[in-house]
């Protein structure tokens, strides 16, 4: 049976309990084509049931709930199913299994989490702020995984005296720091009035990027491997006329 959830954590945990004994269960928050005769149900999040499941899982493995948070942030279509198989394994084995790499479910979950945490690390480097006329910093980006709020601690520690907005344009939301507090808010489109010097700094940066390259040692494949093309859209040095 296919269990549709609303994508929330409690929705997943509710479906997890309901689907636990179903050998053919598939949990998803995406639309999915049903095979002929396949049963499906929409699972309403049940907060009390979810809380009980959480308590039981964390009694077996204290760290597994923060892993659930990472898994549900994944941009993969089958993220709920990956999480389901991993948590089912934990519940069945009644012990932490995160390093049981010979098991498919564990391996899939571990890869999925690695993609999320690796993207966070990448974005620590690839985020590009532009300075607005008010001095606040604005960075649009379009991550594979839903991670904009997980970038907040890093940039807050670095730039405590600057207000900044990390705008996930594809999910239409933003992680915002106002100079005191940080929060997440829906944000469709932002109109940013740039500071007087912003264009000049971007030009200097592009000039720097072009100058530090050694043209006689071109290795484009390596560059793309480290910095995939899907991130280029928001990098001033990669989407400007060549210098």
């Amino acid at each position: 049976m296919i269990y549709f959830t609303d994508g929330s954590r409690n929705g997943f945990l509710t479906a997890f309990v309901r689907a636990f004994r179903d050998e053919d269960a598939y949990i998803t928050s995406r639309q999915k084509q049903l095979a002929l005769g396949q049963e499906s149900a929409f699972v309403e999040a049940d907060d009390a049931l979810a809380a009980r499941a959480e308590a039981r899982l964390s009694a077996i493995d204290r760290r597994c709930l923060s892993e659930l948070d990472l898994l549900l942030r994944s941009g993969a279509d089958n993220r709920e199913q990956i999480a389901f198989r991993y948590f089912k394994k934990i519940a069945q084995d009644r012990r932490p299994v995160r390093n049981l790499f010979s098991d498919d479910a564990v391996l899939a979950a571990s890869e999925c989490m690695r993609r999320v945490t690796f993207e966070i690390h990448r974005l620590h480097g690839f985020i590009r702020f532009m300075e607005s006329a008010s001095g606040a910093l604005y960075a649009p980006f379009s991550p594979d995984n839903d991670v904009c709020d997980l970038l907040l601690p890093h940039f807050r520690a670095r730039l405590p005296h600057f207000a900044f907005v990390l705008h996930d344009v594809s999910r239409k939301k933003a992680a915002i720091y106002d100079g005191k507090n940080s929060f997440v808010a829906p944000l469709d489109r932002a109109e940013v009035l740039l500071s007087a010097d912003e264009q000049a700094w971007q030009a200097l940066w592009k000039r720097y990027y072009a100058s530090v390259n050694i043209p006689s040692r071109e290795r484009l494949k390596q560059m793309r491997g480290y910095m995939p093309v899907r991130y280029w859209k928001f990098l001033p040095e990669k989407n400007a006329p060549e210098l």
């Binding site: 620590h124 530090v212 290795r219 390596q222 040095e237």
Partner: peptide, 20 residues
């Protein structure tokens, strides 16, 4: 402003495959 990043952090990569 700023802090250290113990693991190091690459901000860009040039066409010669080196990191910035």
């Amino acid at each position: 402003m700023g802090n250290g990043y113990i693991a190091g952090c690459c901000h860009s990569f040039t066409p010669d495959g080196r990191c910035v």
